[in-house]
């Protein structure tokens, strides 16, 4: 903890006991609110979606049906197809609502610039990946998010957009045939919808591991918005 006051000094004046700490307001309310809402929604949609998939664990034609995987009931939500659909049709609103709020906030506030993966981030991906996975040297951090983080977050948001659009085609294929076309048609929409869920499922364990590795103050910042002693600030102030 960075601390301005020296504890234990007997003649310290009251005003000198004011503790100054380094902190940054990293996550605005809209981001934190939609993050947690979305976390709940993704959990419910994935679990109920897997239950829905059990009713026809295949893609494409009914006959001949080739069952691909038998998803264990314990991983699913809803009890039966009808129950799972109820959860899916309820949480799709929370998912879409939080997604729209998130994207609207990011775009209107300009906050997206901190997290959107852009071409100049490409060169930083490999050093960061080498550091994480191959114990390479740690690249200097000068921004809130490193290039690999930006890539992961941006890809996950794209997964969210993809699951929304493919879900819309599966839900309303008669109303949105033009939306199915770029996906390769109705049958492919089901494949992409499943693939987008796999994208989320691939992201979440890595995300949770990184949260665990980065400690309490990092986790707290997703609740309060404020992060104490962010690394990128200490580096900037003490080069």
């Amino acid at each position: 903890m960075a601390s301005g006051a020296q504890a234990g000094e007997p003649e310290a004046q009251p005003e000198q006991r004011i503790q100054l700490v380094t902190a940054a307001y990293e996550h605005p309310w809209a981001i934190r609110f939609t993050h947690w809402l979305n976390a709940a929604a993704v959990f419910v949609l994935a679990a109920s979606g897997l239950r829905i998939f059990r009713a026809f664990p295949s893609f494409g034609a009914k006959i001949p049906e080739r069952d691909l995987v038998n998803i264990p009931k314990a991983l699913t939500l809803g009890g039966w197809l009808g129950g799972a659909l109820q959860w899916h049709f309820t949480f799709m609103w929370l998912f879409a609502g939080s997604g729209v709020l998130y994207l609207a906030y990011q775009l209107l506030s300009g906050h997206y610039k901190t997290v959107l993966f852009v071409p100049r981030d490409v060169k930083g991906v490999w050093p960061m990946a080498r550091h994480y996975f191959l114990f390479g040297p740690k690249p200097a951090l000068t921004e809130q998010y490193n290039p690999l983080q930006k890539l992961a977050y941006t890809a996950t948001v794209l997964c969210g957009v993809a699951s929304f659009l493919t879900g819309l085609v599966l839900y309303k294929p008669v109303q949105f045939p033009w939306l199915a076309w770029p996906m390769g048609g109705f049958h492919w929409a089901r494949v992409w919808h499943f693939a987008a869920m796999c994208g989320f499922l691939a992201f979440i364990p890595g995300h949770l591991i990184m949260v665990a590795l980065h400690g309490w103050s990092n986790f707290v910042s997703m609740l309060t918005g404020w992060k104490r002693d962010p690394e990128y600030l200490s580096r900037r102030s003490t080069p």
């Binding site: 004011i18 100054l20 902190a23 309060t224």
Partner: peptide
């Protein structure tokens, strides 16, 4: 400025939470 009074940070954090 990135420096902030500890008590103020705690108060702000509670409110944001």
């Amino acid at each position: 400025m990135a420096s902030i009074e500890d008590k103020k940070l705690k108060r702000l954090s509670r409110r944001e939470l």
